[in-house]
Design a binder for these strands. Structure first.
Length: 886
RNA sequence: GGGCGGAUAGCUCAGGUGGUAGAGCGCCACGUUCACAUCGUGGAUGUCGGGGGUUCGAGUCCCUCUCCGCCCACCA
């Protein structure tokens, strides 16, 4: 006998081990089946499971289990990302804490050895956390972006794109992270609204004693690198100074005043200082006007030797204060204003990013973007929800060159080698590079490899095929690419989704997936984004510990419909844990009643209306759940199951069959037991993708095989029985009516009552009136009815009249009846019904409604009116009778 | 500046093709009937953000306004 509640922690790991031992997650076991592929968004090797992962992987697992049960050869490809910056950061921090020497003192190879050993020991905890969630990934195929094979893919892509002119080296401004001393891409820059200042400086015009031109800046320290001042060519205020020089204060350099459209006469004074080496706009102005580019920062953003000696070595912010103070002392500070601006921060380092002039490698993203845009326009990949395609298009249509080199060590080292004169040789191996060099120079020369590594996303973009073995021509690439659906959150559409589509089209001539499902971001109960600094993180594993993985999974699935955000509250999880308990106890009930064996049962052969009814309801639930999952409407699927299991099956069906199972009609009993067992079996199958642990555990109470490997139920279209449905629904209505009135009339819950039916209306209550009817004890039990009388005359004194459909049933309460309460109840009912009639009449009395609305709508309204009119009449009769007798 | 999303019951949210609003939780009343108190039965609660339009009919379509959130770009 099972306990009263499910104990998830006691069985989850055991069940998971059963699945793994049976190789239930492994792909390739059904060579004749259609493949179905999902690649996991590879979590960072440094990562641990957060709620976003939990949602993301729950949805993938639902799909994987669903398609597996539908007979497909499912590959859910797992793995991890080496996460260049994040991982290097973790290890460097560790070195610092241990008081060890920094990575630069250690040397590259020693440092990398250290990172690898960190990875072996502490990396990838998230993989086991995914197991706890129940993820049915094919772990035998786990990949890592720095595996040998995946690294080979990176080399091949780099070399091929280089050869095709899509990768090139360029010297231009990049977003420089002074903390990591590395370039980062546009996407890794996080602009943060900041309250700052706008300083207005006077630059003396050379040769015009006492005349200044005023420029404004939010970054005063950059003036040390100014090489010009720009004004608009049509700005009358400055026409006469164009071409003249100003003397750059503190520095003494003479710099030109140039005319350039970039200067906006409306902004500030209309004159703008130009620092081409430290501002993206100024860089362009500098190029157009042939201005000098003077870099004034070191790689750590301190002032370098190109600035006056006084400032050299100062940190940029110290230099800012010094520059302002010095200009003020010279009387050249015109004013300071408060100013709100967006300051660029490194999303990982959290320090202010500086535009800095360096050599970096770039990908010509614009060229790659074109076919990626067209593919989505043609619908080769569809986003769900569709509107995310706008975001995708918007970014790709305005895409900038992608800076892919990073001045880090952890990652794929760039396969470029330099000759003694700086000539570059790009090749998949050093040997190839040597060969190229030998050919170039006519002799063997010493080569040095580019020190930099590639942006982590450079390898991630290959994930849908590099994990399958590409560039080798493996059977897996053939069979599982194109993958089916990608599950991800909107925040990496640019970082990852778009780039996978570009790379997939380029190297595989086919988009990597036909569907991209964009799910919500999970927030806390207050709608705040979860973050460590806010301390509002809900750890999914805590919820798993507390409520079980099934409860968390079901919650996430049920909430998956919400737009951009899911606000997760623990009482939702608790509610779905209770749902599991409900099913658990229903199963125990089945067990106690020997209703778990459905072998040889043909659901279409049922004779009892209750059984025919529940079979029909089961089949329509099957449809709803199947269609829900197919359409990625997980909330509909979960909601349909919840409604069916709790309300139809537990609340009504199981209550209906109690009198039958305790009765003495053996045929009815046998059929009912089998029906119950059959429904329970369907429930376990349908619920399995959502609650895999409990369903598997229950399945194994009576089976030696595994539920995970069972078939998804087949839709049996012939099983819906409209007659049984109508009959049972009318019984439900009758019982509900009686219960409602009992409660409203304060009949004690335990008290059994007498009811009466007038002889002319017995036909309306066949099962209630006929003691021999199968459903008779059912109704009596659920409505707590003692006996049923048939009256020849009218209802006696002390009767509550309850209209049910076409007829009226009387609850014989005799002296217990509170006449005033009953009068009030009837009056209220009449009012309600009258309002309904008025509403319907408004429509029916509108000639254009009758003329223009479709016939069935008009007929529906007429019927509705008729029903309510009848109801009112009955209620009025009841009221009159009540008054007559009292 | 460009774009996207949201505004529905006290709370969190569902409401593909327009026919007159639902769920869960919470709340109130009753209840220990032999699966389940992680439960059962019954109940209350909404000018569907404001305004206008299309339509016989709009939470659902169109326009507009207000407020909230987000993305991209810019910010001397």
């Amino acid at each position: 006998m099972l306990d009263k509640t499910f104990q998830p922690d006691a069985v989850e790991s055991e069940i998971y081990a059963l699945w793994e031992d049976a190789e239930a997650f492994a792909c390739g076991k059904r060579p004749d089946a259609k493949p179905y592929t999902i690649v996991i968004p590879p979590p960072n090797v440094t990562g641990s499971l957060h709620m976003g992962h939990a949602l993301n992987n729950t949805l993938q697992d639902i799909m994987a289990r669903f398609e597996r049960m539908r007979g497909k050869d499912v590959l859910w490809q797992p793995g991890m990302d080496h996460a260049g910056i994040a991982t290097q950061m973790v290890v460097e921090r560790q070195l610092a804490e241990e008081g060890n020497i920094g990575r630069r003192d250690m040397g590259r190879q020693a440092f990398l050895d250290r990172v690898w050993s960190w990875k072996e020991e502490s990396g990838g905890t998230i993989i086991n956390q995914l197991r706890r969630l129940g993820a049915s990934c094919d772990w035998s195929r786990e990949r890592f972006t720095m595996d040998e094979g995946l690294s080979r893919a990176v080399l091949k892509v780099f070399v091929e794109w280089y050869r095709d002119g899509l990768i090139y080296k360029d010297k231009r401004l990049v977003n420089w992270d002074p903390e990591f001393e590395s370039a980062i891409s546009d996407l890794e820059v996080d602009p943060r609204e900041t309250n700052g200042s706008m300083w207005h400086f006077r630059y003396p015009i050379v040769g015009e004693e006492g005349r200044y031109i005023v420029v404004a800046t939010t970054r005063p320290e950059t003036m040390l690198g100014d090489t010009g001042v720009a004004v608009h060519p049509d700005d009358d205020r400055y026409k006469d100074v164009i071409g003249k020089m100003v003397e750059l204060p503190l520095v003494g350099r003479h710099i030109p005043i140039v005319a350039d459209d970039y200067a906006d006469p409306e902004q500030g004074s209309g004159a703008v200082k130009i620092t081409p080496a430290h501002d993206f706009n100024d860089f362009d102005v500098g190029r157009r006007n042939d201005l000098e580019m003077i870099n004034i920062f070191t790689s750590k953003a301190a002032i370098n030797e190109n600035a006056p000696e006084k400032y050299q070595g100062m940190d940029r912010f110290a230099a800012r204060d010094a520059v302002v103070a010095d200009l003020d002392a010279l009387g050249l500070l015109e004013k300071v204003e408060d100013h709100v601006l967006a300051v660029p921060y490194g999303d990982r380092s959290n320090v202010v990013i500086e535009p800095w002039l360096t050599d970096q490698w770039y990908v010509d993203a614009e060229t790659l973007a074109k076919p990626a845009i067209e593919a989505v326009e043609r619908g080769e990949t569809v986003f769900v929800p569709r509107h995310w395609e706008n975001t995708y298009f918007e970014w790709l249509r305005n895409i900038q060159p992608w800076c892919i080199s990073r001045q880090l060590w952890w990652g794929h080292q760039i396969p470029a080698w330099y000759g003694p004169d700086g000539e570059v040789f790009v090749a998949e191996s050093e040997e190839d590079a040597q060969q190229q060099a030998a050919q170039h120079y006519g002799k063997a020369v010493e080569l040095t490899q580019d020190e930099d590594v590639l942006d982590t996303w450079f390898s991630s973009q290959l994930w849908p095929f590099s994990t399958l073995g590409w560039p080798e021509d493996t059977p897996e690439v053939d069979r599982y690419y194109q993958t089916d659906v990608l599950f991800t959150a909107f925040d990496i559409i640019f970082f990852w989704v778009a780039r996978m589509i570009m790379a997939g089209i380029y190297f595989k001539r086919e988009v990597p997936f036909h569907t991209v499902y964009i799910h919500a971001l999970v927030r806390d109960e207050q709608g705040q984004k979860m973050s460590k600094s806010k301390g509002n993180i809900v750890d999914p594993l805590d919820l798993v510990d507390q409520y079980g993985a099934d409860a968390l999974r079901f919650t996430l699935a049920a909430m998956a419909a919400q737009g951009r955000d899911i606000q997760l509250s623990t009482n939702r999880v608790e509610g779905y844990r209770n749902f599991g308990t409900k099913l658990w106890n229903a199963y125990r009930f089945c067990d106690m009643n020997e209703a778990l064996d459905a072998s040889g049962f043909d659901p279409s052969g049922c004779t009892q209306p209750v059984n025919r009814w529940i079979v029909g309801e089961t089949v329509s639930t099957l449809h709803a759940v199947t269609e829900g999952i197919e359409a990625y409407r997980f909330n509909d699927a979960a909601g349909g199951l919840y409604q069916f299991i709790w309300h139809n099956f537990c609340d009504w069906y199981l209550e209906f069959i109690k009198p039958l199972l305790n009765g003495d009609d053996e045929d009815v009993k046998a059929e009912t037991r089998q029906t119950t067992a059959w429904v329970m079996e369907q429930i376990l199958r349908l619920l399995h993708p959502f609650m895999p642990f409990m369903t598997e555990h229950l399945w194994r109470q009576t089976h030696d095989d595994l539920l995970i490997l069972q078939d998804w139920p087949k839709p049996e279209l012939g099983l819906a029985d409209a007659t049984a449905r109508t009959e049972i629904e009318s019984v439900i209505a009758l019982i509900s009516e009686i219960r409602t009135v009992r409660a409203e009339m304060n009949v004690p819950a335990g008290a059994k009552i007498l009811v009466a039916v007038r002889s002319g209306e017995v036909g309306a209550f066949p099962a209630l009136v006929d003691d021999a009817a199968v459903l008779n004890p059912v109704i009596k039990r659920l409505a707590r009815v003692e006996t049923v009388e048939t009256l020849d005359g009218d209802f006696p004194r002390g009767t509550v009249q309850v209209p049910v459909g076409e007829a009226t049933i009387g609850l014989l309460l005799a002296d217990v009846l509170d006449v005033d309460a009953e009068r009030a109840r009837l009056t209220k009912e009449i009012e309600k019904a009258t309002k309904e009639v008025e509403n319907v009449d408004k429509r029916l009395n509108n000639p254009s409604f009758v003329a223009k609305a479709p016939e069935h709508v008009v007929a529906e309204q007429r019927e509705r009116r008729e029903e309510y009119a009848q109801l009112i009449e009955k209620l009025k009769e009841a009221l009159k009778r009540l008054d007559d007798l009292s």
